[in-house]
Design a protein around this nucleic acid. Structure first.
Lengths: 90, 90
DNA sequence: TTGACACGCAACCCTGTGATTGCGTATTGT
DNA sequence: ACAATACGCAATCACAGGGTTGCGTGTCAA
C-alpha cells in the first residue's frame, strides 16, 4: 500500500522538517537541503542519515529525485498527502 | 508539540484502522471497537494492545474518551488532522 | 591528471515501541 | 451475594528503524 509509506514518512520529525524546506523551495539539491537543515534549523545529523530519509520520502512519492551531474536534484510533491488524508477529512 | 503526537499516532496501521472505524461511527465503546476490528477487519490483536493504541490516539487529541459505567465511550475528533496538514497543503 | 567534492552502499549499534502475559478492580445482571 | 464482564496497570519480549562509521564511485574544476 502506497499510503502506508506516506504515513511512515511523516512519522519522523526530521523528515517533516525536510518537507518543510522542500515545500518552500520546490527544487534543490540534496547538498543544499543538508546545508540548510544544519545551518537554519540546527539539525545535528550526518549526510548519510539525511540520504536515507530522502530515500524513504521518495518511496512514499513525496519527493522525486534526478541525478544531474554530481548533484541529486530533489522535487517536492504534495499529492500523496492529499490522497492519504481524504480518508478521514471530507 | 501536539502535532508530533498526531503524526506518531498516524504512523501505525492498526491505529489508522481504528480511526477509520471511529470516523464512521463517531461514538462507540472500546469493547465495540475491539469486536468490530476483529470481526470485520480480521485484526488479530489483544484487547490490551488496542487499549494502548487508544491511549496514544487520545494523547494526540484524535479521540476523546469518557467512562460510562463499566464501558469506555470513544469519540472521534478530526480537527488535529486538519491542523497538522495545513503546514504543506495550502 | 589529480585532487576535492557530492553522493551511494553496507554493516553495525541502540533506542523506541508494538504486542503479549498476568493480575487486579469496578461494574453489572441474576 | 456472586459470577461474568469490561477495563486498567505493570513487566517482559522481539523487532523495526534512526543514526553512525567506513569505504567506494562518479563528477568536475584546476
Amino acid at each position: 500500500m502506497q499510503k502506508d509509506l506516506v504515513f511512515k514518512a511523516l512519522s519522523d520529525q526530521t523528515r517533516r522538517l525536510m518537507l518543510d524546506e522542500l515545500s518552500e523551495r520546490k527544487e534543490q539539491t540534496l547538498y543544499e537541503l543538508t546545508a540548510r537543515l544544519i545551518m537554519r534549523h540546527g539539525v545535528a545529523i550526518s549526510r548519510q542519515a539525511l540520504a536515507k530519509h530522502i530515500d524513504l520520502l521518495e518511496q512514499a512519492g513525496l519527493v522525486s529525485s534526478e541525478k544531474r551531474g554530481k548533484y541529486r536534484m530533489l522535487v517536492f510533491n504534495d499529492e500523496p498527502l492529499r490522497a492519504a488524508m481524504d480518508r478521514w477529512l471530507k
